[in-house]
Simulated assay, not measured.
Amino acid sequence: MKKLFVGLAVVVGSMSFAQQFGIKAGANISSISKDGFEDSKSKVGFYGGLFMNAPLSEQFSIQPEVLYSQQGAEVKRTYTALGNTTTIDGKLNLDYITVPVMFQFKATPEFYIEAGPEFGFLVNAKQKGDIKVNGNTVASNTYDAKDNYNSFNMGAALGVGFNVTENFGVNARYVAGFTDINKDGNTSLQNDDNKNRNNTFQVGLNYKF
């Protein structure tokens, strides 16, 4: 029994010693599921934050992260009537604190595959709308829409990464949302009854200390 406890202590100590902390940042290309959002377009945003990488074995590791993530979508509609062209631009900005918990598999010492859940907590939501007639802005409005959206978001992430050096790497990840972003029947930008989910493609850089 004593040997077992000594062995466990050595393993835990080795894992603690092998843990690495780091920072990461990059670009989000986000969209909202097209359930009543058929003419929406992807929106470019930013993500950045901290992570900890803890090896579980020679090939497997777990990497929890805390990120600030800008998501949302854009909508553009154009109408022509009586010789006038009217353009309606709508933008939904959803900012989250996300907590991905990624399980990584090293296919080679440099290349890895990762998958895991992501939990998001809404910190900001703004909607912006502009109406232009023949290129001239006739109306513009921006308002806080946080009360219309669920404060919690959950998704599943799948990605790949490449360690260029021992400390520096690049990674790409796709996060598919599971939960409806709308709260209590409130809807986003244009749809009435449909459920909408966040979908985000991320590409960026990471640095381990």
Rank of each mutant, 00 (worst) to 15 (best):
V138R: 10
I62M: 05
S31I: 00
K41T: 13
D184K: 08
F178W: 01
S69T: 11
N93V: 10
G45E: 02
G83W: 04
S16N: 15
V133L: 12
M1A: 15
Y149M: 02
K91D: 13
T200E: 06
E38R: 03
N136G: 15
A172W: 03
V44P: 12
K128C: 13
F60D: 14
Y96F: 12
S140P: 01
F152L: 06
Q190E: 07
E166W: 06
D184A: 10
F178M: 01
V123E: 05
D184T: 02
D95H: 11
A172H: 02
S69K: 02
Q71A: 02
A145L: 00
V138Y: 08
S42K: 09
G159C: 03
V133R: 13
K91A: 15
T78L: 04
K76C: 08
I97Q: 10
K126Y: 14
A9P: 04
I88L: 14
D193S: 09
V138D: 12
M154H: 04
G159Q: 05
Y207R: 09
A73P: 08
N191I: 00
E65Q: 09
E58F: 13
V164N: 07
G135T: 05
K132E: 13
N198L: 02
T108A: 04
N198S: 01
F168E: 05
V138Q: 12
I88V: 15
N191F: 09
N28R: 01
Q71G: 03
N186M: 00
I97M: 10
L205G: 12
I131C: 03
F5S: 15
E118Y: 01
V12D: 00
P64Q: 08
D39P: 14
N134K: 11
D95K: 07
F162P: 07
R197Q: 11
L67H: 11
I62E: 01
G90S: 14
A115H: 01
S30I: 04
T187C: 04
N153M: 05
A176F: 05
G45W: 00
Q71H: 06
E118F: 02
K34E: 05
F46G: 03
P109F: 02
V44H: 13
N163P: 03
Q127T: 11
N206W: 09
F17A: 15
L67G: 11
V66D: 03
R77C: 08
Y143N: 14
S30N: 01
D192W: 04
F103V: 09
G116H: 00
N163H: 05
T108I: 09
L56R: 06
V99Y: 10
F178C: 03
I113G: 05
S57W: 15
K43S: 15
V170H: 05
S42H: 11
M52L: 01
Q190G: 15
G22K: 12
N148D: 06
V11W: 14
N163Y: 07
T179I: 03
S61Y: 15
V66N: 07
P100W: 00
E110W: 04
G72I: 01
A73M: 09
